[in-house]
């Protein structure tokens, strides 16, 4: 499956899960800020990706599930170097370059774009 084909399927998933318009779902769109995803939507997206692409996604594999709860990972409202390292290891489909310059917890959601999901699926399908 080409990256474009994956993008089209991911787009369908997001239009369905987030009631987003077709033209809103661009590669750069952030799930939360641009497409209005809320916490339960991340689980919905995960379920729908599993169904669409016929693979299983483990807890924390697609989105980080323990950053905010682990005191080693967050201090003074910022994700620590340990936290970033842990996320990088768990989430190789995400580009942390811009985030590392100002790793505020509130900006973690900006890491998750449509393109991120496409990369995730691409990696999963490649095994």
């Amino acid at each position: 499956m080409t990256r474009e084909e994956i993008f089209e399927k991911v787009k369908e998933v997001l239009v369905d899960a987030l009631a987003a318009d077709d033209d809103e779902v661009t590669a750069e769109a952030t799930l939360e800020g641009d497409l209005g995803a809320e916490s339960i939507d991340y689980l919905d997206i995960r379920f729908k990706l599993e169904q669409e692409f016929d693979f299983k996604i483990a807890d924390g594999e697609l989105f980080p599930d323990d950053v905010g709860r682990n005191s080693e990972f967050v201090q003074d409202g910022k994700v620590t170097a340990t936290g970033i390292a842990a996320m990088k290891e768990k989430l190789p489909h995400i580009d942390f370059t811009a985030f590392e310059a100002n790793p505020e917890v509130g900006k973690v959601s900006e890491l998750f774009t449509v393109d991120t999901l496409v990369s995730f699926v691409e990696n999963k399908l490649a095994g």
Binding site: L43, F47, E50, Q51, D59
Partner: peptide, 10 residues
């Protein structure tokens, strides 16, 4: 049940 895991269900 469409899908169920440790976090929730659809």
């Amino acid at each position: 049940v469409q899908r169920m895991d440790s976090r929730g269900a659809a």
